[in-house]
Simulated scan of single mutants.
Amino acid sequence: MQKPIVVGSVAYDPKIVTIWDIIRDYFNDNGIRLDYMLFSNYEAQIEYLLSGKIDIAWNTNVAWVRAYELSNHKAQALLMRDTDIDFKSVFIAKEKSGIKSIQDLKGKKFGLGSADSAQAAILPLKYLENELGENIKDVEIIRYNSDLGKHGDTGRSEFDVLEDIKNGKLDAGAIGISTWVRILEEGLFPAGEIESFYTSEGYCHCNFTALDTLDENIKKTFVDILLGQDPNDPIIKKMMLLEGLNKWVVTTNEELKGYEVLTQAMKEQDLIKNNW
């Protein structure tokens, strides 16, 4: 019997089981054995990928950079969501705060999300350093390290930042674009109370990662099956809605450029090590 393709994913939310049951059943219904292994943190998942205990990992951008660097560039990004392309970080403050640019943060309290979150901590810190240089010392950085190991997937630290801006404990802070869009669409804060004053350049978020030693036929089969999913099929549509995508996209050299700024930031901040 064919050995199943084993995919790793981090269980940051109960919906992950539903998502992966649907994906597993879709593969099996198409004659390809697939199973998944859930992890409580990305560091463990990276370890399992690098040691060959899983074939493919559904990685955050931070997990991808670590896997790529720690494998001596032997990791490959296979596939990603359309929503993983052109992801951004947003800096927010109260509308009446007088903060209209990064330069206005001098003498202010600025909140960063979980230390392992690219969108809410790692990249925002780099953007601050790029803009302020040595003057970053004039900004009081306050970190909200909730749900470490999940690389910001839960969004909890971003909402911690938002709450403390609202109650006056922070002057401003960083969140991911998806959290900001959710706040606007769902009206989670009173209209006009909080506004954005900086939006970063686009970068890439998650991808399916494999080592280059994985059989090429397995990689091709995995990619082809996912690309063949019909987003109008009710079950597939449900999975895509839960997973936050409209379609799967092959990761090319163009998309890989979207990880360069994060790679640089992680090296500068000494975050390549995979401690767990």
Rank of each mutant, 00 (worst) to 15 (best):
D35Y: 10
D35Q: 15
Y36N: 03
Y36A: 09
Y36M: 06
M37F: 13
M37L: 12
L38C: 02
F39A: 04
F39Q: 00
S40A: 15
S40T: 14
Y42G: 08
E43P: 02
E43T: 03
A44Q: 15
A44N: 13
I46L: 08
E47Y: 08
Y48W: 12
Y48A: 13
L49T: 06
L50M: 09
S51V: 01
S51G: 06
S51M: 01
S51W: 02
S51N: 15
S51I: 03
G52I: 06
G52S: 07
K53F: 03
K53P: 07
I54Y: 05
A57M: 11
N59M: 14
N59A: 12
T60G: 04
T60S: 14
T60R: 05
N61Q: 10
V62Q: 07
V62A: 14
A63K: 04
W64C: 03
W64D: 04
W64T: 02
W64K: 04
V65N: 07
V65S: 02
V65G: 01
V65R: 01
R66E: 07
R66M: 05
R66Y: 06
A67P: 00
A67S: 15
E69A: 10
E69K: 12
E69C: 06
E69L: 11
L70W: 04
L70S: 07
S71F: 00
N72M: 03
N72H: 02
H73A: 01
K74S: 09
K74C: 03
K74W: 05
A75F: 10
A75E: 12
A75I: 13
A75V: 07
A75D: 11
Q76C: 02
Q76T: 11
A77I: 06
A77K: 03
A77T: 02
A77C: 11
L78Q: 10
L78N: 14
L79W: 11
L79T: 05
L79F: 10
L79V: 13
M80R: 13
R81G: 03
R81P: 01
D82T: 10
D82V: 09
T83C: 08
D84S: 15
D84M: 01
D84Q: 06
I85Y: 09
I85P: 04
F87K: 10
F87T: 12
K88F: 09
V90S: 03
F91Y: 13
F91M: 14
F91A: 12
I92H: 00
A93Q: 13
A93W: 08
A93L: 05
K94Y: 08
K94S: 06
K94N: 12
K94H: 00
E95C: 08
K96P: 01
G98M: 10
I99T: 00
K100E: 12
S101E: 15
S101Q: 11
S101A: 07
S101Y: 10
I102Q: 08
Q103W: 14
D104M: 07
D104F: 02
K108H: 01
K109D: 11
G111P: 06
G111M: 05
L112W: 08
G113F: 06
S114G: 08
S114A: 14
A115N: 14
D116A: 05
S117M: 05
S117C: 11
S117P: 04
S117L: 08
Q119H: 11
Q119K: 09
Q119A: 15
I122E: 05
L123S: 11
L123V: 14
P124D: 07
P124E: 02
